[in-house]
Write a protein that binds this DNA or RNA. Structure first.
Length: 521
DNA sequence: GCTCCGTTGTGGTC
DNA sequence: GACCACAACGGAGC
């Protein structure tokens, strides 16, 4: 008897440790491995501020296409293939249609915690259940089930890393299963199958950008990269995140596995498992929060809080977010976004973001602090949008979580600790090699002035072929003054924080409001 | 109400 | 590279 199963790939673009794929294969005569191309994610949007679609910059689109090509090739090696479908009018309705057309008995897809994914999957789940089709939606993108952690904590997400780690315990092992062959693909009937498009086929032509992300997508590349990392056991064992060098770019100071985790080319559980094996063989190793395992737990922490916090991605209506009267200044925002603030360290980072779609974690801190509480006092949501579009590893929960953190809106509140746009970078890279690469206009500026070129005498500027105010901008703000002003405004906003909460919700936060009132009297 | 703690500040000293 | 002063936040636990 025929028994057909669909494996719907969204994230989780891998064969290894893939419970949805594993379950689809069990007892099925045919499986249909499906990916739905979402035009909003892929097709050019000329109104966007950078090359790319409405939802993603070109680097991440390219990364996704790499992932799909690799997944298709792996499936073909197992006697199957990826069925690529057109996402009109939207991915969920396309899935509903094929469930019927292909006489599907069970549909399997990885559980997705993001609001967009939740709404999309609810449509499919409801539809399938009406038709009596089995839905299998396992948690496999994260180490833990965020809903369970929240339940363990009495219904609220833990709001500190330490309390999260105390609750979390040990994650489940990855699936050990490997395949020699998959059940054959069934008859797709009249459903149109697409090829995995190229960038050019999507309509991206005459691209002038001269440097693109050096990181290619796909499970094979993820596992190659992982094995490269694991080879250096000492490095893995001694890893301490805050000690990394943000200016290292040819050989980054971190693993750069984040984009692979984001798309699920690499299983977080498999990664965790491998790290643990290394720890066992070397004995002495670093620990969370700074260790590599600690980094995976940070990911879990943000996924959990994001899942359990309504309006996590905005200031308004977000209970854990400080209400701060951020400034609205498009000119400053654009200067930051385009790498024209006049601070070479900040601008070089923003250009690396634009060209590579990746920069070191501490570099992200520098520019996020500069945009928000450090210098420009612009809303973290604006910076979040820029990162979300341009980063190849942009991940809804983690990106929003980090912007909340850096802007001192949640999790972290020491707003007087401000990164200097001049000395922070110089500490790691006194010769400015990083700046010279990403801002070639400054390549002949002497070391002495590379972090503050506006202080160079005109004769030096001329000799370096870079006149400040003409070839490279003057600073948009004076850091010493701007940061002092920001500190003052943050202090005022913090002092007023009780009344902001009162505006948004009345009954729910009554007890905290009373506490705040007491404190004020 | 007090104390301790918090992945990743800066600028100074030794 | 390690330590300090600076200034000074909220959360958690008692």
């Amino acid at each position: 008897m025929e028994s057909n199963a669909v494996v719907w790939f969204r994230k989780g673009l891998r064969i290894h440790d893939n419970p949805a794929l594993d379950y689809a294969c069990r007892g099925s005569s045919h499986i249909f491995p499906v990916f739905v191309l979402d035009p909003r994610y892929l097709h050019p949007d000329p109104s966007a501020f950078s090359l790319g679609s409405a939802r993603a910059g070109l680097n991440r689109i390219r990364f996704l296409l790499d992932c799909l090509l690799d997944l298709d090739s792996s499936l073909r090696n197992l006697g199957s293939r990826l069925l690529v479908l057109r996402g009109h009018p939207e991915p969920a309705s396309v899935i509903c249609r094929i469930l019927k057309d292909w006489n599907i008995r069970k549909v399997c897809y990885e559980f997705d915690t993001e609001p967009y994914g939740q709404a999309r999957d609810r449509q499919v789940t409801d539809f399938a259940r009406q038709l009596g089709i089995e839905v299998f939606s396992p948690v496999s993108h994260t180490l833990f089930d965020p809903a369970e952690v929240i339940k363990k904590n009495g219904g609220r997400p833990p709001l500190t890393y330490q309390s999260f780690v105390a609750l979390a315990g040990k994650p489940p092992d990855p699936l050990a299963k490997t395949y020699s062959e998959l059940p054959p693909v069934g008859n797709v009937g009249k459903v149109e199958l697409l090829n995995i498009p190229t960038i050019e086929e999507l309509g991206y032509r005459d691209i002038e950008q001269e440097e693109f992300s050096p990181f290619g997508g796909g499970e094979s590349e993820a596992l190659r990269r992982l094995n490269e990392v694991l080879k250096d056991k000492e490095w893995v064992a001694n890893f301490e995140k805050p000690k990394g060098d943000p200016s290292a770019f040819w050989k980054p100071a971190t693993t750069v596995l984040s984009p692979y985790l984001k798309f699920g080319c690499l299983s977080s559980r498999y990664f965790y498992h491998c790290l643990h094996s290394v720890y066992l063989t070397v004995g002495k190793h670093t620990s969370p929060p700074v260790s590599l395992v600690g980094q995976l737990l940070w990911r879990e922490f943000f996924y959990t809080v994001a899942f359990g916090t309504p309006n996590f991605d905005q200031m308004r209506g977000n209970k854990i977010c400080k209400q701060i009267p951020w400034k609205d200044d498009d000119k400053l925002l654009v200067a930051w976004r385009e790498g024209r603030t006049g601070y070479p360290w900040i601008d070089a980072i923003m250009i690396q973001l634009k060209k590579w779609g990746w920069m070191h974690h501490l570099a992200r801190h520098s520019v996020a602090c500069f945009l928000t509480r450090g210098d420009l006092f612009i809303h973290w949501e604006k910076g979040r949008d820029v990162f979300e579009r341009l980063l190849i590893d942009s991940d809804w929960a983690i990106n929003n979580g980090n912007w909340l953190w850096l802007s001192c809106s949640a999790f972290f509140y020491q707003y007087h600790r401000i990164y200097s746009p001049i000395s922070f970078g110089r500490k790691y890279d006194p010769d400015g090699k990083y700046i010279r690469h990403f801002l070639p206009v400054l390549k002949d500026m002497p070391n002495e002035y590379i972090y503050e070129p506006w202080t160079a005498p005109l004769s030096i500027q001329k000799k370096a072929n870079c006149i400040i105010g003409k070839d490279y901008p003057r600073p948009v703000v004076v850091h010493d003054r701007a940061s002092k002003d920001c500190r003052k405004k943050m202090g005022e906003a913090y002092a007023k924080v009780g009344s902001a909460e009162e505006e948004d919700d009345t009954a729910a936060s009554e007890s905290t409001t009373i506490q705040k009132r007491k404190r004020q009297t």
